[in-house]
Simulated scan of single mutants.
Amino acid sequence: MAGTVYQVPHVIKFNHGFVQPGQTNVNFPLIRYADVLLEIAECLNEQAFVADGEAFELLNAVRNRAGLAAKTANNPNLALRVSNQESFREAIMKERQVELAFENHR
């Protein structure tokens, strides 16, 4: 229809305008420290699941920076409990989804 305006949601996380047409002075991150920590935690978990071990420390470092509660192997809060290798895999994937949202990581 003519004259109808549709609002389309979009991400403006790295939208800071152009210095010259097609060029911006914004440094787009290629890899983030949080991603490196999550990758190391994932590798440690794949080698061997250790309840509340080094992999948990790395995962919780990312969560703590974001102001989130720590995940532990026997947490009374079921949403924060990671009790085996498979649930740790899922926790890493979920953390990667929310931490790296809209940053061209798949």
Rank of each mutant, 00 (worst) to 15 (best):
K13F: 01
N75F: 00
I92Q: 02
F18S: 15
E42L: 13
E46Q: 10
L80C: 05
V19A: 14
R81A: 10
H10M: 15
V5C: 05
A69M: 08
A55R: 00
N25A: 14
C43K: 09
N77W: 03
T4H: 10
S87H: 00
H105N: 12
R32M: 10
Q23A: 13
A69D: 13
H16Y: 14
I92Y: 04
I31D: 06
Q47K: 11
N75W: 00
N75H: 06
R63T: 08
E95Y: 03
Q20N: 14
L100Y: 03
H105D: 07
P21A: 14
P9I: 11
A48K: 09
E57I: 11
L80T: 04
N104S: 07
Q7Y: 13
L68A: 10
P76L: 03
V50M: 05
A66V: 05
L37S: 08
K13H: 01
A41M: 04
R65L: 15
G22K: 05
I31H: 03
I40D: 07
E103V: 04
Q20W: 08
N27Y: 06
L78G: 09
N60T: 04
P9H: 12
F14S: 14
R32D: 07
E54Q: 14
R81G: 09
N77E: 10
K94R: 08
V19I: 12
L58K: 08
A41F: 09
N104Q: 02
V36G: 03
E57A: 15
Y6L: 15
T72N: 03
Q47E: 11
R81Y: 06
F88M: 14
L68P: 02
A69C: 03
A61F: 01
D52A: 08
A55P: 12
R96V: 08
T24D: 03
V36E: 06
H10D: 14
R65V: 15
N25V: 09
